[in-house]
Design a protein around this nucleic acid. Structure first.
Length: 590
RNA sequence: GGACCCGUGGUGUAGCGGCCAAACAUGCGGCCCUGUCAAGGCCGAGAUCGCGAGUUCGAAUCUCGUCGGGUCCGCCA
């Protein structure tokens, strides 16, 4: 046995006890005579005192940062005045009687004992060292607590955790699949699951009734700050439920979780706000609004119905809208600052940005000469804009206006610090559209997935107006992120047929792609639904991290590489031969 | 596929046409020191400024290319 206690657990009550500790040298302070070492493990840091008069303890004099030591000694109360209140173990210290060097360490590529920004490439290359740092240990621990809480909470409520295969079947729609070649059936491929969607529905047919899984999901798409190619979802499905049954389980789960493991965080409200998709988009320009602050979008199309401003006229004539946000206290923005905002708006797809600055000296801004005084008054009446505020207009298609203003809203959230970092603004967004028209392929796509239940009252619209069909799909949003997505599923084959028809799937295709599911549903499928909160994103938000990589032990970089292990890497000739795969690589670009 | 940003000793930064064969902090090596806790003091080693080409009398500094990294758009049923 290497140790009797951890470095974090000893207190004044242990005074006089002989203990054996093992850990890393966090810091060393050599006073020539007496030597102090802060010994660290996952549980904390404790001061070891080395006396040169004790020969067995002499290795402490030569120990360097991150060496691994085993220390035998006696717990002593520190001399008066030498206590360290910043340390949980600060009232005591260990007087070393014997110090064993278990392992030495070369000088490290960066410091473990200091919280400074290190080049992320270096961090990822030496991830095992990065993970030794306090912040990363905290993130690992928080993630563990979140998952443990989920398992306990759901188990207590009758949920059964069931594992589903990683080697499964390619899904025709949705994200790009990761493929795995089959050696036993050359030329055929498994797909790694984008989510256990079909399998969890089959578990409902199997009578599991309440299922969950901490499920790894894989999608071969480009990475983002909040997106990794492999990520973890709390996958969850329930039988004999309606939408609100699912929402209330998940709301209860996260409300209790925050209370227990994040006591310093506040919820925006309890119960959580519930917005329809249409309402969220109209008010915030986004289906995942950050509700920690206001700055809502206003529709000015009516006020400008008779506007002579060509930009506004044209937007309205082509079926678009004129919308705005009010930026508090920014009326005095310089020309350069406004130009930068315009540039930002263009990057989001807008043709431009009209501004109106309500300064103490009167109305200014790029749209000033096109907007009549009565229109200014009407805007102030509608939006409550006051002197000192800056009005930003986007006149464009609905989609572009919403996307641009939503992005500007988040820009000002960060710039003006409008959102409380200690608030968790959980909310539900419900009643998503069932279908989206795919301009590229000239066909309808399922907005969520093809097994999502359309609203019963919208069934007649399949023939007349598919775009207006709503579904029983819902998202959980948190501080401007989509943190879960789910739906009530179709369990009636006649409705499933209608959906497949509208999606333009032929019977043979349906059979080949979903045959197993369709057949299963003919053997008594219960009404069911569920959702899948994203663990990585939630932990990222809980830990106040700006990036999902900070809460994943071994993440990929933006190019999808594992910098530490240098993956992906070429396959050997032998491997390829066994799989009967020949490479046909494109010529290198000259 | 596209836009923008970044790249200076091991690490984090400064320098942004000549004062720089590059400064500071930390880490590293040595010496001193019996109560420190980001210990302190003294001494020392360590970067041809990602790489290549160009502009210039002169480039870490400007331009172009390239490589690496990041943020975002597209993509993510």
């Amino acid at each position: 046995m290497y140790k009797t206690h951890t470095c974090g657990e000893l207190r004044a009550t242990h005074e006089g006890q002989s203990v054996v500790l093992a850990g890393w040298v966090h810091r060393q302070r050599d006073h020539g005579g007496v030597t102090f070492i802060d010994l660290r493990d996952r549980y904390g840091v404790i001061q070891i005192v080395g006396d040169p008069a004790i020969p067995d303890a002499s290795p402490i004099q030569h120990a360097r940062q991150e060496w691994v030591l085993q220390v035998s000694g006696v717990v002593h109360r520190r001399p008066g005045g030498a206590e360290n209140p910043n340390l949980a173990t600060g009232e005591i210290e260990i007087h070393a009687q014997k110090v064993e060097v278990l392992n030495q360490a070369k000088p490290l590529p960066f410091l473990i004992n200091k919280d400074e920004d290190i080049d992320e490439n270096v961090r990822l290359k030496y991830r095992y060292l990065d993970l030794r740092r306090e912040k990363m240990q905290k993130n690992l621990i928080l993630r563990h607590k979140v998952i443990k809480f989920i398992r306990d909470y759901l188990s207590d409520r009758g949920f059964l955790e069931v594992e589903t295969p990683m080697l499964f079947k390619t899904t025709p729609e949705g994200a790009r699949d990761y493929l795995v070649p089959s050696r036993l059936q050359p030329g055929n491929f498994y797909a790694l699951p984008q989510s256990p969607q079909q399998l969890k529905q089959l578990l409902m047919v199997a009578g599991v009734d309440r299922y969950f899984q901490i499920a790894r999901c894989l999608r071969d798409e480009d990475l983002r700050g909040d997106r990794q190619p492999e990520f973890t979802q709390l996958d969850l499905e329930m039988s004999f439920v309606e939408r609100d049954d699912v929402l209330s389980i998940v709301e209860g789960l996260f409300t209790s979780m925050v209370k227990e493991i994040l006591p310093e965080k506040r919820l925006l409200s309890s119960p959580w706000p519930l917005l329809t998709h249409a309402e969220a988009v109209q008010r915030y320009g986004s289906d995942k609004p950050d509700l920690r602050f206001g700055m809502e979008l206003y529709n000015l199309s009516e006020i400008f119905a008779k506007s002579e401003f060509r930009v506004f006229q044209m937007a309205l004539q082509s079926g678009g809208v004129i919308k705005c946000i009010i930026v508090p206290g920014c009326a005095e923005y310089t020309r350069k600052e406004v130009d930068d905002l315009t540039e930002f708006a263009k990057e989001q797809g807008a043709k431009g940005l009209a501004t109106l600055a309500l300064t103490a000296e009167g109305v200014k801004g790029t749209a000033q000469k096109f907007i009549k005084p009565d229109e200014v008054a009407a805007i102030q009446q509608l939006t409550g804009a006051k002197t000192g505020d800056l009005v930003l207009f986007v006149a464009d298609s609905k989609a572009v206006a919403h996307k641009t203003l939503s992005a500007l809203r988040l820009l000002f959230r960060d710039r003006l610090k409008l959102a409380d970092p200690n608030m968790l603004a959980f909310a539900w967004v419900v009643d998503f559209p069932m279908f989206e028209y795919n301009e590229e392929d000239k066909k309808w796509d399922a907005a969520h997935h093809p097994f999502t239940m359309p609203k019963m009252e919208d069934l007649p619209k399949f023939e007349t107006d598919p775009a207006s069909i709503l579904s029983d799909a819902y998202d959980m949003v948190l501080n401007g992120y989509e943190t879960a997505s789910g739906s009530i599923r179709i369990h009636r084959s006649d409705i499933q047929q209608k959906v497949f028809q509208l999606l333009g799937l032929k019977d043979e295709e349906i059979q080949a792609k979903f045959g197993h599911l369709i057949e299963a549903f003919q053997f008594g499928a219960p009404p069911h639904g569920g959702m899948a909160p994203g663990i990585d994103r939630l932990v990222m938000l809980f830990a106040d991290e700006p990036n999902i990589r900070e809460v994943i032990a071994f993440p990929k970089n933006q190019a999808g590489r594992d910098v530490m292990a240098d993956a992906p890497s070429p396959a050997s000739e032998k491997q390829l031969r066994e799989l009967q795969i020949k490479l046909d690589l494109k010529e290198e670009k000259k």
